[in-house]
């Protein structure tokens, strides 16, 4: 045999990779103008909240009795001043921190707790399902506003208690959605096939269930952020959440309500912010939902 020169080895096959699920969701989301705009608004508010100390033109806490309730467009106070003469723009900017905190945190915590309970209920079925779902139904029986107010009232005013009561309000709906989606996925043939290959419940949930249920639950939860912001504002408005002099939007709305006949435009500003932010979250949530619909 002739000594062979090292031949060029056959090229290792190049494995094609399809676009992953999340990158395809992102691609579809990018084409949705409304969702992109909503996301831009959300990001802008987040950025403003993070950089509040640098963007805000004035100290949100320092007022002056001489310049109370200036109208929008006053020199030095582009959005006017509130009933204590504090700069509205700065207060709205700092208020974004509070409102985002109050809007996002309860939903986030409820998302984790609710998903866990809902997926457990949906996947285990039977008695476990009954116990979890019926306990959730008890909380569900109260209107969410009433429940939040009652819980906050019972726990006592304060930021921590307001967050806690909002979280409790959001767990039941998330559990319900999580349970419904999981029950649906559990009946799919691929879960059956996974069981048939001898996989344990934990592995099946990790590999086959989570990936298919977390998306829909997350979409639902993003839609709740706006509800949470409005409820939080409501609690503050009633004096059960954030306390003065903090510039939380709901609270600002409350304190400014006395000025509604004097300077209605300024008084409405916090409400406008609440409205814009919650609409942005809702529109983004809708866009995400349609982007996550995989065609067959």
């Amino acid at each position: 045999m002739v000594m062979q020169l090292p031949l060029t080895r056959p090229a290792a096959p190049v494995f094609e990779r399809s676009e992953g699920y999340w990158s395809s969701v992102f691609r579809r989301l990018r084409r949705d103008r409304v969702a992109v705009a909503a996301l831009a608004v959300i990001l802008a508010i987040v950025a403003v909240a993070l950089l509040a100390d640098y963007v805000a033109p004035a100290d949100p806490y320092r007022g002056a009795t001489l310049r109370r309730l200036r109208p929008i467009g006053t020199a030095g106070f582009p959005l006017g001043t509130d009933e204590l003469g504090r700069d509205m723009l700065s207060r709205l900017i700092h208020g974004a921190r509070w409102s985002l905190l109050m809007g996002v945190t309860p939903v986030l915590v409820a998302f984790v707790l609710g998903s866990a309970a809902g997926i457990l209920a949906g996947f285990a079925g039977g008695r476990i399902n009954t116990v979890i779902m019926r306990s959730v139904d008890v909380l569900y029986a109260f209107p969410s506003v009433l429940l939040a107010v009652a819980l906050s009232g019972a726990l006592g005013a304060g930021l921590g208690n307001a967050l806690l009561s909002l979280t409790i309000v959001f767990v039941p709906p998330i559990v319900r959605v999580a349970e419904a989606v999981t029950t649906q996925v559990r009946g799919r043939d691929y879960v059956e096939a996974a069981r048939a290959s001898g996989a344990g419940a934990f592995t099946i949930v990790r590999v086959h269930v989570l990936g298919n249920v977390l998306g829909p639950i997350f979409v639902y939860a993003t839609g709740l952020v706006s509800v949470s912001m409005i409820l939080a504002s409501g609690l503050s408005f009633l004096g059960l959440g954030v306390r003065p002099p903090e510039p939380e939007w709901g609270l600002m709305l409350n304190t400014l309500r006395t000025a509604i006949y004097v300077n209605p435009w300024v008084a409405a500003l916090p409400g406008v912010m609440i409205f814009v932010t919650s609409i942005a979250f809702n529109l983004f949530s809708d866009g995400l939902r349609s982007a996550m619909d995989v065609k067959r």
């Binding site: 399809s18 699920y21 799919r188 043939d189 691929y190 059956e192 096939a193 996974a194 290959s197 001898g198 996989a199 344990g200 592995t203 590999v207 086959h208 990936g211 298919n212 995989v294 067959r296």
Partner: peptide
Amino acid sequence: DSYASLNPRLTIEASIAFGPSVH
């Protein structure tokens, strides 16, 4: 149902490899 019996979030390869890795 060929579609319902594959996890839509997993690549073909991952779906096939799942059983062996379980074992």
